[in-house]
Simulated assay, not measured.
Amino acid sequence: MSHQLMSDGSLPPGSPDTGPSAVAQLHDYRRTKDVRSDLEPLRKQVSEIIAAILAGKSPDEAELREQLRRHVARHPGRPEKALLGHLISVSDRQNEAG
C-alpha cells in the first residue's frame, strides 16, 4: 500500500491520518539547504515507506508505529536515518525475545 505525500508533507484527502507532526517531519529535508541532490530519490522512497507504515490501523502494531514516529522526530529531515534506526530497534527487540 503506497501513500503519496503532498508537497506540504501531508497525506491526500481521504487517506488515513498518520499524525501531522510525523508526516510533516518526513519532508523537512526538502526545506533544508544541506540536502545532497543524490539523496533526494532515496529520501522520497523512504518517506513513502514510512508514511505507509504510519497509515496502518492494526492495534497490534500501534506500539511499533509510535516507535517509528519517535525515530522520525529524532532525525528531522533524515527519513533514511529514522527508518534505519527503527529497523535496528525492531531487530534488537526480536533478538532479545529469542
Results as ranks from 00 to 15, higher is better:
M1L: 11
M1T: 11
S2K: 09
S2Q: 14
S2R: 14
H3M: 09
Q4W: 08
M6Q: 15
M6W: 10
S7W: 10
S7T: 14
G9L: 05
S10Q: 08
L11H: 04
P12K: 07
G14W: 04
G14R: 11
S15G: 07
S15V: 02
S15C: 10
S15H: 08
S15L: 02
S15K: 09
P16N: 08
P16H: 08
D17F: 03
D17M: 06
D17E: 12
G19T: 04
P20H: 11
S21K: 11
S21G: 10
A22D: 05
A22P: 03
A22M: 06
A24I: 06
L26P: 02
H27R: 14
D28R: 13
D28K: 14
D28Q: 15
D28L: 13
Y29A: 04
Y29T: 03
R30C: 08
T32Y: 12
T32F: 12
K33P: 04
K33R: 12
K33Q: 14
K33D: 15
D34R: 10
D34H: 10
D34M: 09
D38M: 13
D38L: 13
D38S: 15
D38V: 15
D38C: 15
L39N: 05
L39C: 07
P41E: 05
L42R: 08
K44M: 13
Q45L: 12
Q45A: 15
Q45H: 12
V46S: 03
V46P: 01
S47N: 03
E48W: 02
I49S: 06
I49H: 04
I50Q: 00
I50P: 00
I50M: 02
I50L: 03
I50A: 01
A52G: 15
A52I: 08
L54Q: 01
L54N: 01
A55Y: 07
A55F: 05
A55R: 03
A55L: 06
G56A: 08
K57L: 12
K57V: 13
S58E: 10
S58P: 04
S58M: 06
P59I: 09
P59T: 11
D60P: 10
E61F: 11
E61A: 12
A62Q: 10
A62E: 13
E63T: 14
E63P: 02
R65A: 04
R65C: 04
R65K: 02
Q67V: 07
Q67C: 09
R69W: 00
R70M: 13
H71Y: 07
H71V: 03
V72Q: 00
V72L: 03
V72D: 00
A73H: 05
R74Q: 12
R74P: 05
R74W: 05
R74F: 06
R74Y: 06
H75K: 09
P76Q: 03
P76F: 02
G77Y: 01
R78F: 02
P79I: 06
P79N: 07
P79K: 08
E80Y: 00
A82I: 00
A82S: 08
L83G: 00
H86V: 02
I88H: 07
I88T: 12
I88V: 15
I88R: 03
V90I: 13
D92I: 11
D92F: 08
D92C: 11
R93Y: 05
Q94I: 14
N95R: 09
E96Y: 11
